[in-house]
Design a protein around this nucleic acid. Structure first.
Length: 504
RNA sequence: GUGCCUGUAGCUCAGUCGGUAGAGCAGUAGCCUUUUAAGCUAUUGGUCGCGGGUUCGAGCCCCGCCGGGCACACCA
């Protein structure tokens, strides 16, 4: 099995015997990329030779087709594929002998001019060829690529080499995040960075990852949200702040959950949740346009239109519309628990949990097109401001599309006394066994006591947004390195049974 | 955590009724000065995820373990 590695090491030795050390190169003057040459010379006629201009390409050799005194290589760079043509008569015997040692997977630089082969393929007529790196591991099948999903996640570098679609998704992700920043920055927001190591991990209900500071000799948690720190900045007068940051939650792993994921949280002083709704839909439409050039994106079998305005739906009204459920049945805990049984849902530990389960069962299936669901009960929303004329509900919405939650936003609670009471209630919940309720952050209450302007805030799951905009059903396919259980074999995976003795 | 599915050569996959391991590509040795999944000839390569069990005999049947996928649970 290490036969293949041994064969490659033999090629390495052969190169060194010819005075070429593939690991010696430190740089290469790249003057063109594959896609640039392809478009620049698209009009080059049959048998055409653009000898006046010399170009240098660099990348990975993905195919080597030797044909006697001539070799064709496929070179892949980050823009695509370009064919190299190496002819012994033109490069000389010594250089040709070196070229013959180059194999699939090696890194090479080539310079020459662009021409069309007999079959009409635009190619580089190579005048000089340099080995810039040696691949000692065999690559997967050139036709089938790497299909084994486990191996694709564990060795993402191989996946990226042989499956161009993966690279495209990751580039799309990069663009989405960059566009997100551009859009937000253009609205006068400051990007900030708040701590990830916390003594109290609040702002959401989730189990944190625990760690320890040696210097301070105290336990610490990784953050589960950025909310409470960003709102401290609003108290501090920064007015418009956001953070695109990693969040950790020590919970289940599945198609839509990874223990670490990326969240956009954004806060705007003097906005309310309605202002945020408009900002939110504009942002989504902008991102859809920048990725697809249109507001309509395919997700699985469904065409999702992010054209503004999005549909608005009332939280209580949705239950009424889809299942004839009345307000009191939801807001009264006992009636709500009765509804659970009525709809065949297992018992819930809390009123809030029961409401979530009912929503999932009754409302979510109807939320294919982007929809703002507005007016969540206060029991579900410990950090949101109550509605003026209906204090059992809050000025909060969630945005759904393709039955997935994409955003959560509300007018922020800025009454410190109300906030204190809600924290006190959460202590009771925690004591009654709900381990996911975070301990209260009393310093945050003190911050509110200094006075926080009316403020709207929003959280957007970046990973899910990327899933939607790139049409991927699993979060692992939009993360470069999704968490995998380590293999015991990983430590001793390599069999270096031959060693450097093979080299010269 | 539970259920279902899954793990065979570097990669992609076959493997019948339980009868002693196969193909293509890759690799190796040749031939070939316009190929492109190059071609032609020859050829190497296996802890069938791991450990037990049943059997004259296990890739195949049974049990346990490990990894992965999906669903549920948990959770945004």
């Amino acid at each position: 099995m290490s036969d293949l590695v041994a064969a490659r090491r033999a090629r390495l030795a052969a190169l060194r015997e010819r005075g070429v050390d593939p690991f010696a190169a430190t740089r290469y003057d790249v003057t063109a990329h594959a896609a640039e040459l392809a478009s620049k010379y698209a009009e080059l006629p049959e048998q055409g030779r653009a000898e006046a201009q010399t170009w240098s390409l660099a990348g990975r050799i993905m195919s080597a087709r030797g044909q006697g005194k001539v070799i064709f290589f496929d070179l892949h760079d980050r823009t695509g594929r370009f064919q190299l043509f190496v002819r012994q008569n033109d490069v000389g015997e010594e250089a040709f002998a070196i070229a013959k040692e180059i194999e699939r997977g090696d890194i090479a630089g080539a310079s020459g001019f662009v021409f069309r082969t007999k079959t009409g393929e635009l190619s580089l007529y190579v005048r000089s060829l340099e080995v810039l790196g040696k691949s000692l591991q065999p690559l997967p099948d050139k036709w089938h690529g790497l299909q084994d999903v486990e191996k694709r996640y564990r060795r993402r570098y191989v996946d990226l080499i042989v499956n161009p679609a993966v690279r495209d998704v990751m580039i799309a992700r990069s663009k989405i995040v960059a566009e997100m920043r551009r859009f937000i920055d253009a609205h006068g927001f400051y990007e900030v960075e708040t701590p990830t190591l916390l003594t109290i991990a609040g702002g959401a209900t989730a189990r944190p990852f625990l760690t320890h500071s040696n210097a301070l000799d105290i336990p610490l948690s990784l953050r589960i949200a950025t909310e409470l720190y960003l709102k401290r900045l609003i108290v501090g007068g920064m007015e418009r702040v956001y953070e695109i940051g990693r969040i950790w939650r020590n919970e289940g792993i599945d198609r839509t959950h990874n223990p670490e994921f990326t969240m956009l949280e954004l806060y705007a002083a003097f906005w309310d949740v309605q202002d945020m709704m408009r900002f939110n839909e504009e942002l989504m439409a902008h991102l859809a346009r920048s990725v697809h050039g249109t507001e309509t994106v395919m997700y699985g079998e469904d065409a999702i239109s992010f054209a503004t305005p999005f549909r608005r739906m009332d939280y209580l009204g949705a239950f009424k519309e889809f299942a004839g459920i009345e307000r009191e049945q939801l807001l009264d805990p006992d009636q709500c628990f009765a509804l659970l049984r009525e709809h065949g849902i297992p018992d819930s530990p809390s009123h809030a949990h029961a409401l979530d389960k009912l929503f999932e069962k009754i409302v979510e299936p109807h939320l294919l097109q982007p929809t703002f669901v507005y007016g969540y009960p206060v029991v579900l929303s410990p950090l949101a401001k109550r509605m003026k004329d209906d204090p059992q509900l809050t000025e909060r919405y969630e945005l759904f599309a393709a039955h997935m939650e994409l955003a959560n936003a509300f007018t922020e609670l800025n009454d410190p006394d109300d906030q204190r009471r809600r924290f006190e209630l959460s202590i009771a919940e925690k004591e009654s066994g709900d381990e996911e309720v975070p301990p209260p952050d009393w310093d945050f209450v003190r911050a509110l006591e200094y006075g926080m302007p009316p403020t709207a805030g929003i959280g957007i799951g970046v990973d899910r947004l990327v899933m939607m905009l790139t049409n991927n059903a699993s979060i692992r396919d939009i993360l470069l390195f999704p968490l995998q259980r380590p293999l015991p074999a990983d430590a001793t995976d390599d069999d270096d049974d031959e060693g450097p003795a093979a080299g010269t």
